[in-house]
Design a protein around this nucleic acid. Sequence first.
DNA 1: CCTGCAAGTTAGATTACACTAACATTATAG
DNA 2: CTATAATGTTAGTGTAATCTAACTTGCAGG
Lengths: 127, 127
Amino acid sequence: MKTKRYSESLEDYLETIYMYGGKDVKSVDIANHLNVSRASVNNALNSLIDKGLVTKKLYGNIALTDTGLEVSKKILEKHEILKEFLIDVLRVKPKQAETEACGIEHVISDYTASQIKKLIKKIKSEN
Amino acid sequence: MKTKRYSESLEDYLETIYMYGGKDVKSVDIANHLNVSRASVNNALNSLIDKGLVTKKLYGNIALTDTGLEVSKKILEKHEILKEFLIDVLRVKPKQAETEACGIEHVISDYTASQIKKLIKKIKSEN
DNA sequence: CCTGCAAGTTAGATTACACTAACATTATAG
DNA sequence: CTATAATGTTAGTGTAATCTAACTTGCAGG
């Protein structure tokens, strides 16, 4: 059940693929979303394919493998928890919260994320 | 008053120099603390010198400049706040908390850090 | 004082991740 | 159905950060 860790960069790519539906995703959308070149996306995808997280044929669209899906889901979940915590609890501005969540999500453990989730709930119920 | 951002790696070096007193610091201690080679430390120090954060003569010891001191202090402060939050509020194991704080400290804004600090105080006062 | 080891430096290799430019393929609009 | 635009790929480059190995310098014990 312990999820393997990947580089921040690769996790960002995974997360983006997931956000675009996890299958039939287009390279160019990833490039636009992450503000990187199409070449960089291609490069990253090859790493993800090597690691068994993504499948794709030459000139074909992108899909997450089961493992890739699992990893992506967890990252996005952390992202959402962090954003909620930053915005609703800490009163950080949404845009800044988005940026910070993007950084923190790659660092915190599943346990820490779940603890933050509990804390949010507790604090919100106090109002 | 807005502090410039540096790479995680360079911030780690700065933080370590600060932890060792901020002046008369030895390269080898930094290497041991960060588990990197002496060569890597040398390399990083040259970057920090270029950026005006550290001073040092050839074969001499290391000292933070005023700017370097300011930056380091802020990072270490974030580190401490995060550690306290993770351990005392979220009940993360100390070793894990240390690791996660090390990652998050490079990402969060001064504002977010100060908000976390307030939250810790509030929560602790409730007991 | 001098010598040997500890510490600092340099050179060169490696890896990851980004870029641009040029080229290949696919999709689409006339 | 073909020409062109959009997308995907490849090749080559750059930068940051790491490493090892070899070299230089400095200091502390004999």
